[in-house]
Amino acid sequence: MDAHSAKDPKDATDTTNATTPHDRTGTLDEALQRLHTTGPERDGWLSNHAPMVAEALAARGQAAAVHRWLDTYADKLEDFPSPVAPVTDANWPAALGDPRRAADWITYFSHATAEGSWRDLLALWWPRLLPGMYGGATLPVIRVGHAVRALLDGGVNPPRLTELAHGLGYWAARHQPVSGVTPLPGPPDSPATARSALDAVPPVPRLQGGFTERLARVGQLPLWSDEVSDPDTARRRLAELVRATTHRYATHGHGNATMLVHAATAPNAVLRTLPALPRGLWVPSLHAAWTASAAVTAMYAPEEAVPYVPAPRGITGDDFLELALAHGEEHVIKLTDTALDVADDQALAAALRAIELSAPINS
């Protein structure tokens, strides 16, 4: 399929004023338009979390808080980057993984989403991008997952298509495969659970350095779900992985309060995207999500776990989101969003743990 194929009729059924069930005000679309003049990163490598937080708040019934939160985050936004040279259907391999080409990639996908079916475009590019989901500390795939949820839950309109283009373009620019990882035998329980497999991940030697330096030290990861070949089983296992990584944050998040959020939110982004993908892509999506979660677990594992502290009884899901919003830190809000998907006591305890470990946005 060419990236500029004819528009699919099912994508054209709702192209104006589409809103999510939780955002009937159009606030999300206003926020996305506001943010699309900004770049995907700041300071050369830190990700712009604002579109993801805006979508999470709108999807959870907090649209009224979106612009107020964006105002607090505004100092962390940079202008949209300058283009280098156009990305085309012929030359894209040479531009893949080049962060200097972020504007070129976003422009390419913006044209493609405007001219063709976004689902077909996603089906074409997902397997191309999936091996490089570690780039940008997994933030690009997380941004794509939020964009897809907005499209699936609320329908198709220009701001949401443009947001998908920004997410895919960021992913293509930061595309970074992982290599040299030796598979280890899985944990002895049969079948191995996601939690036992995460517990069996060998931590990398403790070192200073950023994500890329730590990723290069990941040498061994346990096998988990590599035998899965059925799409429905892959989807169930992916949901299990999201639950296990979210639960684990409650006892291991102090290894790195920010980065270990991604061990849960990256596979959840993949899980949210599955309904928009052909079923044939579900199994490789599971395998890539496991490798990403396991690698982040290895890179930021604490020396010891802390005891699990249950969340206080009587606090509702809305209460947890209000607490996260009052705290304001972007990773706290996004982990709370994932914890509300998991929707059990330990997941909500993980959300509270993130609030405890993270500095508030205005600190």
Rank of each mutant, 00 (worst) to 15 (best):
Y308I: 05
A354P: 01
R206W: 10
I142G: 01
L271H: 01
G61I: 12
T16R: 15
Y108V: 10
A74T: 15
L323M: 14
A349H: 09
A324I: 05
V296M: 05
N17L: 15
V178E: 12
M1D: 11
H67F: 12
V87T: 09
V228Y: 08
N157L: 04
V283S: 03
P191W: 13
A194S: 11
Y170I: 03
L168P: 01
G253D: 03
A103K: 09
V342N: 01
F211H: 13
H67D: 15
G255W: 13
A147G: 01
L340Y: 06
L28G: 08
T336G: 06
M299I: 00
A172M: 08
H287T: 06
N268Y: 14
A269E: 00
L122Q: 01
R353Y: 02
A295F: 00
W290A: 04
T138E: 05
A301Y: 03
A12E: 14
L241T: 05
H4A: 13
L152Y: 01
M299L: 01
G314P: 09
D199N: 12
G39V: 00
T138W: 01
L129Q: 06
R42N: 06
D89E: 15
E304I: 04
T162R: 15
A112G: 05
G26K: 10
L221W: 05
L241V: 08
S5V: 12
